[in-house]
């Protein structure tokens, strides 16, 4: 089971802070297409991806137990 975190507008659009996806061993881009369909997140492509709290690439493979966070463009400071 992969844990997925949404923030800011992605959180509001999906209506979830956290969801779980019952998969093991799929790429971030595969996970992304599943999520954007399931939660109608048309702007998911603009988000950076963090796997276990580190920025990661689309081809990173995520496994059960991993935490994948979608990070929309940041605006701190």
């Amino acid at each position: 089971m992969i844990n997925v975190l949404f923030f800011a507008e992605l959180q509001e659009t999906s209506g979830h802070e956290k969801v779980t996806v019952d998969e093991d061993g799929l790429s971030v881009s595969e996970l992304k297409s599943k999520l954007s369909t399931a939660y109608e997140l048309s702007r998911l492509d603009q988000a950076m991806i963090a796997v276990n709290e580190e920025y990661s690439q689309e081809d990173t493979v995520v496994n059960s137990g991993d935490v994948v966070a979608f990070i929309p463009p940041v605006s701190g400071g």
């Binding site: 923030f7 800011a8 929309p72 940041v74 605006s75 701190g76």
Partner: peptide, 22 residues
């Protein structure tokens, strides 16, 4: 901080609100 720390700001204006991105 403004380019890579995962922190987001939501503006609340007189006439609406929005999560700001880049």
């Amino acid at each position: 901080i403004k380019e890579m720390v995962p922190i987001w700001k939501k503006e609340h204006w007189e006439d609406g609100e929005k999560w700001l991105g880049d």
